[in-house]
Amino acid sequence: MKKLFLLLGLGLLGAAPAATAQIYSPQEPLAHTYSIVARDPKTGEMAVAVQSHWFSVGTSVSWGEAGVGVVATQSFTNKSFGLRGLALMKQGKSAAETLKILLSDDAGREVRQVAILDAKGGVATHTGKKCITYAGHITGKDFSVQANMMLSDKVWPAMAKAFQEKAHLPLAERVLAALDAAEAQGGDIRGRQSAAILVVPGNSNKQPWNERLVDLRVDDHERPLKELRRLLTVQRAYEHMNNGDLAVEKNNMTLAMKEYSAAEQLQPNNLEMQYWHAITLANTGKVDDALKILQPVFKADNNWRILTERLPPVGLLTVSAADLKRILEVK
């Protein structure tokens, strides 16, 4: 790695020697990779997803803000493109205008690869002439796929095709399909190490702490895309759990049970999901049904039985003393 920086510092990529110290540095990750920026025209949601043979690629490549847009900055990554790009779009600049401004004063633009998508679906992408072969991009309606240092030039066309063919899927699953297609064509010539996916709403509710619909990273893994998909499945399960809790608050127990069951189908071995499903049943008078769920949960981990004793004082378990005794003594 030090040798690579030395070569760059000597200007062997064609950049002026006096400027190279500012263009290339160990603080700018060499995120040679493939990625996608995309928008769902039905929901307005915007996503950026990436995979690379580089540690924690999501911390440098992926940027997004609700109601504004998303940015993928890669190859010799310029992380300032992320925040600066979002700031420009927030000021009303289009994706194309934003990209032009970012590249206008970047002495390293020929080794950069960047894709920008704005909240209106506008897309702008740049692949520098000195990005490592194979490198290229394809832009389409509401999306752009881009890649560099790939095993072959079939990677980004496969991504574009997969994204377009999976229009029936939610946006997160759709961009993951594009990443899978890239990997099926050989992906990064170095292999694989990390991956990330970020999805933000098309409109801001002025609560930025609640405006990342999906924000998942796999920083170091032998099969990062498989692990990323597993994490997305876990998130979907917890979304069903949260919907179930909301239904309970609204006293819609039919919907609550449906949501809890959907969560457990996605995560059949998750004891906590089973446990709270049972507690909800008990609170609605279905203690016998609750006992059927709690028996194997308590057997697997007695701490859930101990926790149950602590729920009545805070109002999370509202059963009679007799029913509480039945629950605690279930074997």
Rank of each mutant, 00 (worst) to 15 (best):
Asn242Ile: 15
Asn242Cys: 14
Asn243Ala: 15
Asn243Ile: 07
Gly244Asp: 09
Ala247Arg: 04
Glu249Ala: 06
Lys250Asn: 10
Lys250Phe: 07
Asn251Trp: 03
Asn251Gly: 02
Asn252Glu: 10
Met253Pro: 00
Met253Glu: 07
Thr254Asp: 12
Thr254Phe: 05
Leu255Cys: 02
Leu255Arg: 03
Ala256Gln: 03
Lys258Asp: 14
Lys258Gly: 09
Lys258Ala: 15
Tyr260Trp: 14
Tyr260Cys: 06
Ser261Asp: 09
Ala262Ile: 04
Ala263Asp: 04
Leu266Trp: 09
Gln267Val: 08
Pro268Leu: 15
Asn269Phe: 14
Asn270Gln: 11
Asn270His: 12
Leu271Cys: 07
Leu271Met: 11
Glu272Leu: 15
Met273Lys: 07
Met273Tyr: 10
Tyr275Trp: 07
Tyr275Gln: 03
Trp276Asn: 07
Ala278Glu: 08
Ile279Glu: 00
Thr280Gly: 03
Leu281Cys: 02
Leu281Trp: 03
Ala282Val: 02
Ala282Gln: 03
Asn283Gln: 08
Thr284Ile: 02
Thr284Lys: 10
Lys286Phe: 02
Val287Gln: 04
Asp288Ala: 10
Asp288Met: 06
Asp288Arg: 01
Asp288Thr: 04
Ala290Phe: 10
Ala290Leu: 11
Leu291Tyr: 05
Lys292Cys: 05
Ile293Ser: 01
Pro296Gln: 13
Pro296Asn: 12
Pro296Gly: 12
Val297Leu: 09
Val297Pro: 02
Val297Thr: 03
Phe298Ile: 05
Lys299His: 12
Lys299Glu: 13
Ala300Glu: 15
Ala300Ile: 04
Ala300His: 10
Asp301Asn: 15
Asn302Phe: 05
Asn302Thr: 03
Asn303Ala: 15
Trp304Cys: 04
Arg305Gln: 12
Arg305Tyr: 11
